[in-house]
């Protein structure tokens, strides 16, 4: 059994049996999860912000930080692991993107992250099959490669799957 633990802005792909990809305490960040049933490969990125134009240097340093750089990079990593370049048949799931109430909209980063991710997926003809997103609590997510299950947990709320 091996765990690949992703920090903020990290992305990872695995196809080895017994491996689990995990990321902790998403807050307003979003985990995008790619699952390829043909290659039995799983990939995940811990996306923190919608748009890399605010800090191109950080984009170079950690490509998974931003929705617009993380999604193409994760897809490329999946293709390197055998996924067809069109990503046909690939399952996509989204977790996270919690928000804190702010009438000024400034602090609604979770919503902006989700919108940016869905827009990027849409422009590529892709979409999420399932999601556990929004609301006001932070989620931890684990994806065992063997089952492709997306297991979510949160202190005080237990554990569930999508």
């Amino acid at each position: 059994m091996k765990d690949i633990v992703l920090g903020i802005g990290d992305l990872g792909v695995a196809s080895t049996a017994g491996t689990t990809i995990k990321t902790y305490a998403l807050g307003s960040c979003v985990a995008i999860i790619f699952l390829d049933p043909k290659t039995r490969c799983a990939g995940m990125a811990h996306i923190a912000l919608p748009d890399s134009s605010i800090n191109p240097e950080m984009r170079r340093k950690r490509i998974g930080y931003f929705a617009d750089s993380a999604i193409p990079a994760l897809l490329e990593a999946m293709v390197r692991n055998g996924t067809h370049p069109t990503a046909k048949g690939m399952i996509i799931k989204l977790v996270g993107g919690a928000s804190i109430m702010d009438n000024n909209q400034t602090f609604n980063i979770g919503k902006r992250n989700l919108l940016a991710i869905k827009k990027i997926l849409w422009t590529r003809g892709m979409g999420a099959l399932a999601e556990d997103t929004g609301e006001n609590f932070s989620r931890t997510v684990a994806v065992p490669v063997d089952t492709g299950e997306v297991i979510i947990s949160c202190p005080g709320r237990g554990q569930w799957k999508i």
Binding site: A25, S28, G110, F137, S138
Partner: peptide, 15 residues
């Protein structure tokens, strides 16, 4: 919001 919380009370406060 950045995920640096202290458990069950994470994000359970008013801005």
């Amino acid at each position: 919001m950045w995920g640096q919380d202290t458990g069950s009370d994470g994000m359970q406060y008013q801005l």
